[in-house]
Design a protein around this nucleic acid. Structure first.
Lengths: 233, 233
DNA sequence: CGCTAATTTGAGTGACTTCAAGCACAGTGG
DNA sequence: CCACTGTGCTTGAAGTCACTCAAATTAGCG
């Protein structure tokens, strides 16, 4: 990572409008802005490491960050992806625990770092901000519970179809119905909780059934209702 | 459920000391106390239903409540158990979503119901309380992430051993090393995310290996290090 | 410098194995 | 007596292993 020539101004940040920061006063937004640092992270950079202490959280200004846990013999379990406007690392800051996940950049990113004290100060003086933060964690918790149920009850095939649809909802499709996020088959396997080979096999099956089309990492979702049916949603 | 003859007084509630309520002023505790209702719930009673709106949350005064989601063809996925001092339903209240889980009493319980407005009021006027609540949800989120990784990567055998240890940590053992919570094999299966038969078979295996002892629903944990080894912890 | 050669990384396949689900049925005990 | 526990047997989904092939990176070198 390296520092960014032009530090993005929170006040002007597109992120402001629809994020947890939307209830901050101009003064509070300024305090975030002046307290923060911004850095450019290249693909592959680690933002923070599982088990390490972090003394602040990050706001994704640009790029995509993969949040994952490392399980048995180093196998990754991807928890979520953070895209512009999302914040990462706040869970560990708030609960005052060590980071329980690793954050790795998968598309060159600009991240703003906001120190813990700043966060705690805002919670103290702005109840609306606290509510936003709480709602965010509660929504994430709800999603985590859904995922637990899926992973425990659905087949790999169902989960893979579901993940494709979730990726579509999160990152969208471009003109040719191609998913706007590029993942390796291994990463997809680490989301679904299966082996890389199984993902490869199932994706070709989906292609054979006319549900999707494959060109390397480009995956086009051709038959969304069909995928939804397989995913049991 | 039926109303309790003697409404437990928050001020005197043992729960107060170690719960999210510990930072409330006497006035605030009073407001919770006078705004709340208490009811006795018998085993099998449903406290709230997945998909329904709930206009408040519950504090478990006594008993055990099972929190679960209903997945494909009605199969339960147990998310957690709530014991005295725990609060349930707050996730949906805070995120202003419909309940994403069902809460069912598995040991006769006394639950205090605290209306949403009351909760929002406290968040507004007591930042320390907000912090407690946030830390609670963040810790739960961390646990959920752990569970996702486990269920995605560990075998049923490993998960079952782990669940036994988690139940020990949560509910403790009595004099004879017997787990202080009584679950059906099906409920254990619904925690682990497996079939009832698999739980039965694995429990007998564990017994054969001298790790546990079985007397109906009474499960004694004989060799905790052994279980920990199997669970990969 | 430019242009192969060498290495790495990811996608894809086939053969084989194994874990665990599902079904059917037999006890059993509150 | 019905819900729960327990057992045997079968089958299938998915994991593992062992490769090939293609593309992308890096290194080597005249």
């Amino acid at each position: 990572m390296k520092s960014v020539p032009h530090v993005p101004i929170c006040d002007e940040c597109i992120i402001k409008g629809h994020s947890i920061f939307k209830d901050l006063t101009t003064d509070q937004l300024d305090s975030v802005h002046y307290g923060k640092g911004s850095s450019l992270y290249k693909r592959g950079n680690i933002v923070y490491h599982e088990g390490h202490r972090i003394n602040g959280f990050y706001c994704v200004q640009d790029g995509i960050v993969k949040i994952y846990k490392t399980g048995i013999d180093g196998k990754e379990q991807i928890i979520r992806f953070a895209k512009p406007g999302d914040i990462i690392g706040f869970r560990s800051v708030l609960s005052k625990e060590l980071a329980c996940t690793t954050a790795k950049v998968i598309e060159d990113s600009v991240l703003c770092f906001i120190p813990s004290e700043n966060l705690f100060q805002l919670v103290k003086e702005n109840p609306a901000f606290s509510m936003q933060l709480m709602q965010l964690t509660c929504r994430e918790l709800g999603e985590a519970n859904n995922f637990i149920t899926d992973i425990a009850q659905k087949t790999v095939r169902e989960r893979l179809a579901e993940i494709l649809l979730i990726l579509m909802d999160t990152f969208g499709l471009d003109s040719d119905k191609v998913l706007k996020i590029s993942l390796t088959r291994e990463e997809m396997a680490n989301m679904v909780g299966t082996a890389t080979e199984s993902v490869i096999r199932l994706l070709s099956e989906f292609k054979l059934d006319g549900l999707i089309d494959l060109h390397g990492r480009k995956i086009s979702l051709l038959d969304i209702p069909g995928l939804r049916k397989i995913a049991n949603m």
